[in-house]
């Protein structure tokens, strides 16, 4: 048996498996939509923009890289470091390709999945370690990945249209947010909703600003406040946003398992 794969410390295996599970849950959360979209819609009625190179316009490329992460299930069969490393590479490359593909580039699922995949690539190369330094670095880098993703969201909302609630209110009023969104729109007048969104929007901006500071906040605070905040975002957007957030939530939970 390969020495590199033998006897990986249990905390690191547990951490990696928790992360991969959440990552896959987020990736395939919209599986039904992508089954229709990637295998019927973009094939039957292609959308063509010359901005994208031919490789990133190919329906077969999108299909292949969307399904490729199924191979990472091997990490649950055998806890080999090689398997974890290959899984991380597959997760990261698949995310990166779909982040650049004409038909999927807009979905933030592939952006957060990419960053978590990068973290796992690094983590998988160190999985033989169980020293405190490694655990400290792993947790700090995880918080940096979470912080960076929310920093990006935060700075882009530092504009009057978000602070006064107009941007989020317009999106909520004009987009189809399913059954819950429809019921909320039916239960309240537009004037009342726009008034509420003045405060909801401020809360979102402040909450993202807090999560952007994750690397310098206590880990438990980020977990116990940040994860409910992320879950709360779905109330004002759509449950599908968990496809974006599951990998980040999983990363936060997974690194909490890193202890001797």
């Amino acid at each position: 048996m390969n020495d590199l794969n033998d006897n990986l410390p249990r905390p690191t295996v547990r951490c990696a498996r928790i992360l991969v599970a959440f990552w896959l849950a987020g990736w395939f959360l919209k599986g039904e939509f992508f089954r229709l979209y990637l295998f019927q819609t973009i094939v039957g009625y292609p959308f063509v923009m010359d901005f994208f190179p031919e490789f990133f316009r190919s329906a077969q490329v999108a299909q292949c890289f969307y399904l490729l992460p199924l191979f990472v299930l091997t990490v649950f069969i055998r806890p080999y470091r090689t398997y974890f490393f290959l899984a991380a590479v597959i997760m990261t490359v698949s995310s990166f390709v779909l982040l650049l593909h004409q038909d999927t580039h807009n979905d933030a699922t592939f952006l957060t999945s990419f960053w978590v995949g990068l973290w796992l690539i690094w983590f998988s190369t160190q999985m033989h370690r169980d020293d405190d330094d490694f655990f400290v670095h792993a947790r700090s880098l995880a918080l940096c990945v979470v912080g960076l993703n929310f920093l990006g969201g935060f700075v882009g909302k530092l504009t009057p249209e978000f602070w006064n609630g107009k941007a989020l209110a317009d999106i909520f009023m004009e987009q189809n947010y399913g059954v819950i969104g429809s019921r909320i729109r039916a239960a309240f007048s537009e004037h009342d909703l726009r008034t509420y969104f003045q405060w909801i929007s401020k809360a979102v901006v402040v909450g993202e600003g807090m999560l952007a500071l994750s690397p310098i906040l206590p880990y438990r605070l980020v977990v116990w406040v940040g994860i409910p905040f992320m879950a709360g975002i779905s109330l004002f957007t759509t449950w599908r946003i968990f496809s974006v957030l599951f990998c980040l939530i999983g990363l936060l939970i997974a690194v909490g398992r890193l202890k001797k």
């Binding site: 990006g152 882009g156 978000f162």
Partner: peptide, 22 residues
């Protein structure tokens, strides 16, 4: 989708920017 060349746009795609701008 006007950031040229494509490689520059690809690099920018890795920069988190969820719900940015109006």
């Amino acid at each position: 989708l006007t950031l040229n060349p494509f490689s520059r746009w690809a690099a920018a795609q890795c920069v988190p920017s969820m719900y940015n701008f109006k």
